[in-house]
């Protein structure tokens, strides 16, 4: 994109006969054109960012105006065991979700690269991504039901005990994580697949003539050359994963006994269950800070900006 855009923004050179337009200034028109989006930006993105920070420093129950309390919400938060528990639950969720999803997506992407370019296949792989989290959650609530769910019936058929996926403190987070893997792995695979397209075929051919096997090709060529894209995909998916809410809200509401109470769930509960908007805002700030730290850490650790392909 860079070449075209920089060359394009240079004013028309002497070859252009239309010299009169050369220095034309479009400020008024431009302001008119960015007005709708600009208002949207200021009112629904920038303003909330500022008020959100402000609310986190207040006691605010919506019914009465916010009352300034300084850093009280933050000190409460640091000594709030539920906050720490929800943080642990969220991190566990992200670890399982991202771990499994990335491995599977990479597998699908590489299989597609090796097997076929078919748009058909790619469409099928993407299908779960088109239904909402709510639909995915309810379908899996049924598939994984402890009595009539087909998965448990299959487990029993091959001799295992039925697993109460949604009601067990041990299983609930892996279950939610895997449901979201189901919905997102195809999308992630397609992103990685797009990245694989940038690896020159000659590299594989050269390696193959020297007798390299598939596993070696993957380890020596695919993985290192895909690294920058893999890093970006990881940053994106981790950020998304940290914001998990829909699936849990529809299925367990944070239970059993807070075993699936992720940060977002806890924020929602504080705001809409206890009308404690000040504290909920402080929790959001905490989540924001965590996301920023993770993004930067990942970016630098994986050197996302650099490519080995130069």
């Amino acid at each position: 994109m860079s070449a075209a855009s920089t060359a394009g923004s240079v004013d028309a050179g002497p070859r252009r006969p239309a010299g009169r337009r050369k220095k034309r200034d479009d400020t008024r028109l431009a302001l008119l054109f960015i007005l709708p989006a600009g208002i949207g930006l200021l009112v629904f993105l920038v303003w909330p960012l500022l008020t959100g920070l402000y609310f986190s420093l207040t006691e605010y129950s919506i019914l009465t105006p916010p009352k300034w309390v300084g850093l009280e919400n933050y000190t409460t938060m640091l000594s709030d065991p539920v906050f720490w528990k929800s943080l642990r639950v969220t991190v566990l969720y992200v670890a399982i979700n991202i771990g499994v999803q990335t491995v599977l997506a990479l597998l699908i992407a590489v299989l597609m690269q090796r097997l076929t370019q078919s748009t058909w296949l790619r469409s099928l792989v993407l299908t779960p991504y088109l239904v909402s989290n709510v639909v995915a959650a309810i379908v899996f609530l049924w598939l994984l039901d402890s009595q009539l769910g087909i998965v448990n019936l299959l487990l029993q058929a091959v001799g295992f005990d039925p697993v109460s996926f949604w009601a067990s403190e041990t299983w609930v987070i892996p279950t939610v994580a895997l449901v979201n893997v189901w919905r997102h792995m195809g999308y992630t695979a397609l992103l990685l697949f797009a990245g694989l397209q940038s690896i020159p075929e000659q590299l594989y051919e050269a390696a193959r003539t020297e007798g390299a096997g598939e596993i070696q090709l993957f380890r020596r060529i695919t993985l290192p050359l895909l690294r920058p894209i893999l890093a970006l995909v990881l940053i994106m998916t981790v950020i998304g994963s940290f914001q998990v809410f829909d699936t849990i809200s529809v299925t367990t509401q944070g239970g059993p006994s807070d075993a699936s109470k992720v940060l977002q769930m806890y924020i929602y509960e504080n705001a809409f269950g206890q009308y404690n908007f000040g504290y909920a805002s402080a929790l959001s700030v905490a989540l924001l800070v965590i996301l920023m730290i993770i993004t930067f850490a990942q970016y630098f650790l994986t050197r996302a900006g650099q490519s080995d392909l130069d």
Binding site: N180, M236, T237, I239, Q243, F245, S307
Partner: peptide, 28 residues
């Protein structure tokens, strides 16, 4: 070499309102 921050930066916003899915639409 122009690794635009788009896909990375865009994660949180692009699916405006469905958490857990926030990577949606990114990097398109």
């Amino acid at each position: 070499m122009t690794t635009t921050s788009a896909p990375a930066a865009d994660g949180p916003r692009s699916t405006p309102l469905s958490p857990g899915a926030s990577a949606d639409g990114t990097g398109i």
